[in-house]
Design a protein around this nucleic acid. Structure first.
Lengths: 418, 418
DNA sequence: GTGTCGGCCGTCTGCCGACAA
DNA sequence: TTGTCGGCAGACGGCCGACAC
């Protein structure tokens, strides 16, 4: 069977699908359906697969906590410019804003396939902000990766013009349709759709000595169109509607500089702060973009997760903890560390903020790119009563009453490595 | 002579050169020299050639007028999103800000070669803002295109993989070094540097029947590296240091959508307004990016140009005028039109603003993409005393005193086509 | 004067199994 | 099990003058 080489490139389309129309929370992770006018479906599972195993989006309609500091970090990471000292202070903007999450749309950059989410947030009124601490804390709903799925980091041979793509055997048997082994060699045409609903055709063949699964015709067109290089990852996923989907995850390149050429990074930082401050002052909606692979940390988290971490968990200097990280093979592993201090990240602009208030040391010396500061809700403290929830109901307490000095009394914990 | 095909691609570098170090104003257009640390020189003439014949940057140290509305238009054009109604009003931010221009740096996007300028502005104090109207209005200093220069819009053959680049004969004779006509066919190696100081080598040959100038070896590498398509333009320019430079100007593509994936367009609009408002309130410096090929109009103009247009020129409904436009061949031509009304573009947010306060009708019916609204300083009114300056000194007057109704008494002039 | 084409040659793409890690 | 390679055949890149507008 010979594939024609035409029709492989579809025109790029603007993406943006409203996920707020239907919402099912009956499963372990939120399931969205998305339709906007004549727009086609942007598959939620594919978006999450591209975003990575640690990324979860809060359900539409839920209450979330928004952190301007974290949002600022995303802008800083994207523009490669820290927020300048010239940026005005917004004294009426608290370090965290409890919001109603009205809308979440998943997007993919038309140029790079970079995934990001647009969220519409509405700050609660001051009275509502106080009341939420009295609500019972529900358990968070962790994201789940789909099962019928595989992800492979591309080798030099995979991206070379000299050949095709070598499919790991288990992966091919798990997610590709079964080959007709009566043919010699067994082969079929695979059709997969990307985030923009563009169709890609590949010749899937099982040949060689020893036998292996390969993608040949069509593969190089895909590699050059997506500008993939060795180290990037490609993933295939089989959705419920019997469609094969594929996505990409680019390697963490040495920080691509993008000074945007439209707006200074200072203005961007001011923009997000002013937008949040205005929304907080008027209790009106505002819009943010969350780019999970550009942002150092999630800056919109479920309120339940925040309340549980900040009000129902006791942490102290010297305490051991675990934290989840994504591995290079796109799976998850835990790293261990010790809390070395608890203090404000920026005591001038953001006093009494919980954003990255925990200074930590990591057990493994290869902790080069792991943050020296984390937030309470990112870590899992190891108590002397581990593995099962405490049978004693925890009483609510405010970790440091506003207007009073921090209970921890430790502005800069220094290195107390144990 | 055979060129090796290696060494044609240089690593992309971050651009950004300080032009404020040396400033000569003795010529008809501002000449900048730029050095930052070990950075190489970004050639000012090449930047201007890529920016187009109508773009001029005010001299460093001069006084300029900054228009938030125009800046907002640039963001809207770049994000394809108009400013939302949810954006807060900044009642203390006037529609124009008279500023000291402290710094201008010319840049080129590392990905696309798009040219843009970064400017550092400092609003004058309220007292200074008033005083400037009493200054004598100097004549503007129009930008000038260099002479040793040519620009060609690429044909299908130029960008096809099938062949090279056909050099217009006059252009080759004017800006390329003379060929050695003793060789048969006459040929040479051309070396040209782009905005990033990357070096590009081309085989320049004079052959065929009839004889013509061609760029062969090296051309296709350049086309694919810069992702040029038919309709884009390439320009060659010969600078004073005996270096051949080359730049590109992309055709106005059908609006490439870029929702930035980092910051919502609302936050960007708020950001530029809040940054300007903060700078105005504190008389502190702020930074803007001016992207001449993305922005519908210049929004930082010399104060002298503004004062001359607003206070020393009488315009009225029905008056005829001329205005400069860039042609598709990158030269300049004048279009004629008639003033059909004078009114606020946005009487709610920006009352009494001179930004696009003039409604116009264009003589030629092909005026599809010419703005229906222009600013006073963009047009050249045709009076009954044309061609030479009036011998009578014009007295200063404010066109519409703030707090009083517009002198024109015409909120919406409608179509008064003559 | 210059845009496009047919002709022609050389390089590179891309499919194959061999082989080794 | 799978990454890389040599071998090989065919496609495409790219240089040439012809020719027409």
């Amino acid at each position: 069977m010979k594939l024609s080489s035409s029709g492989f490139n579809q025109p790029a389309e603007e993406e943006g699908y409203d996920v707020s129309k239907f919402l099912s929370v009956g499963q372990n992770y939120a399931v969205y359906a998305f339709m906007v006018g004549e727009k086609k479906t942007l598959n939620s599972e594919l978006w999450h697969a591209c975003a990575g195993p640690l990324v979860s989006l809060p359900p539409v309609g839920s209450r979330v906590v928004y952190f301007p500091q974290g949002h600022s970090e995303q802008v800083a990471a994207s523009t490669n410019r820290e927020a300048d000292v010239h940026i005005p202070n917004y004294p009426n903007l608290p370090p965290q804003l409890i919001c109603q999450l009205h809308n979440v749309t998943m997007h993919a950059d038309a140029e790079t396939d970079e995934v990001y989410a647009q969220m519409t947030l509405q700050p609660l009124s001051p009275q509502e902000q106080k009341d939420v601490y009295l609500l019972p804390a529900e358990l968070g709903t962790p994201s789940k990766q789909p099962t019928n799925y595989f992800c492979k980091t591309l080798t030099a041979s995979d991206t070379s013009t000299h050949g095709g793509f070598s499919v790991p055997r288990r992966a091919a048997e798990k997610v590709f349709p079964p080959l007709d082994y009566t043919q010699q060699p067994p082969a079929q045409e695979l059709i997969a759709r990307d985030l923009h609903d563009n169709e890609w055709k590949f010749r899937h063949i099982f040949r060689g000595q020893p036998k292996r699964h390969l993608l040949t015709t069509g593969w190089s067109v895909f590699v050059s169109a997506k500008r993939l290089v060795a180290g990037d990852s490609v993933l295939f996923i089989w959705n419920e509607k019997n469609q094969l989907l594929l996505g990409i995850r680019r390697a963490n390149r040495p920080q691509t500089v993008m000074p945007s050429s439209v707006l200074s990074s200072d203005s961007m930082h001011i923009g997000l702060l002013a937008a949040a401050a205005h929304a907080a002052a008027t209790n009106s909606r505002f819009t943010i973009f969350y780019n999970p692979r550009a942002s150092p940390s999630e800056f919109v988290i479920p309120l339940t997760k925040y309340v549980k971490a900040v009000y129902h968990t006791r942490v102290s200097v010297g305490m051991r903890f675990r934290m989840l990280f994504e591995t290079e093979e796109s799976s998850v592993r835990r790293y261990m560390g010790t809390i070395t201090g608890i203090s404000d990240l920026d005591s001038v602009r953001w006093p009494n903020s919980h954003w990255r208030s925990v200074k930590v040391g990591w057990d493994e010396s290869t902790a080069g790119d792991r943050q020296p500061r984390v937030s309470l809700w990112e870590i899992e403290p190891l108590t002397t009563f581990p593995m099962y929830p405490s049978p004693f109901p925890l009483r609510l307490r405010r970790p440091w009453p506003s207007g009073l000095p921090s209970l921890y009394g430790l502005k800069d914990g220094g290195d107390m490595g144990i």
